[in-house]
Amino acid sequence: MFAEVLAEVRGHHRGLAGYLEAVADKPLRFDGDNANQQSSWNHETLGYLELLAPSEPWINSGLRTRFVEAILQRWQARLKGMAPYQAQGYRLYVYESLALTVSAVAETKGGFPYPGQPRFVDHPRDVARLFHGGGLFERSELVPATPKEVLAAVEKHNGSISKPTAQALGLQVGDLRKWIEFLGLADQVNALRKRNKRRPAQFRSEEQMPEHSYHIYERRLPAGY
């Protein structure tokens, strides 16, 4: 499958084909027993795929699905040559972030490695279809307003994050605040407020934000699979 998907992508965009190869062959680490740490080493957010999507109409849900399945297939073959193969096995993931994200961890006593509220799905396409159209930081179901749009609206409204600014973005006031927090724009928004002689707005830090819900596909590979 990998060769077929690589050829398909190369026929459209040689740079993206090189990116697919690089992700599929990236170094993978499974040191220690902390699966979340392993994921931080091994995960890849497919930002380049989503950056191209707005100008490449062939990048649709089907292509996204084949793209991540090709990566998982290559990883699954490569993992047979690594230490956890015989004794532990692995878990492969495709999950929802600002772009499709893939990751691999060894099986550990800790089990599922991620915090938050996972919504497990049956197939990678169930995650891939969330990214129909749009692209990284483009408007979609997951991205109601881009960082550039948020800052432009706040600047246009003289640093205000009240109802007129939210309405300009098609958001409720509470959702605007949450989106500013999620995008990490608090400092930039407060700089605009200071420029307009407004008091700093109080935003939650990452540690204070509630656990988020996200869609995730899990493939468990037993030892010696």
Rank of each mutant, 00 (worst) to 15 (best):
115 P>A: 05
120 F>N: 01
1 M>F: 12
180 I>A: 12
50 E>I: 04
52 L>N: 01
117 Q>F: 15
86 Q>M: 10
66 R>K: 11
119 R>I: 03
145 A>W: 14
62 G>R: 15
50 E>S: 11
218 E>C: 11
178 K>C: 04
99 A>C: 14
31 D>M: 05
16 L>K: 10
96 E>M: 03
85 Y>F: 15
60 N>Y: 00
216 I>A: 05
130 L>N: 11
5 V>E: 02
48 Y>A: 08
78 R>M: 09
159 G>L: 11
146 T>Q: 11
81 G>C: 03
99 A>N: 12
179 W>Y: 06
190 N>R: 12
181 E>W: 13
164 P>A: 06
65 T>S: 01
134 G>K: 03
50 E>W: 08
62 G>A: 12
225 Y>R: 06
224 G>S: 08
111 G>E: 00
129 R>A: 13
164 P>R: 09
207 E>S: 13
165 T>V: 09
181 E>Y: 10
79 L>D: 11
192 L>M: 03
94 V>S: 01
207 E>T: 12
115 P>Q: 11
98 L>Y: 09
120 F>H: 11
161 I>C: 12
105 V>W: 13
114 Y>A: 02
133 G>Y: 10
38 Q>P: 11
192 L>E: 07
90 Y>N: 01
82 M>A: 15
224 G>K: 03
8 E>N: 00
71 I>L: 05
52 L>M: 14
66 R>W: 08
106 A>E: 05
62 G>P: 10
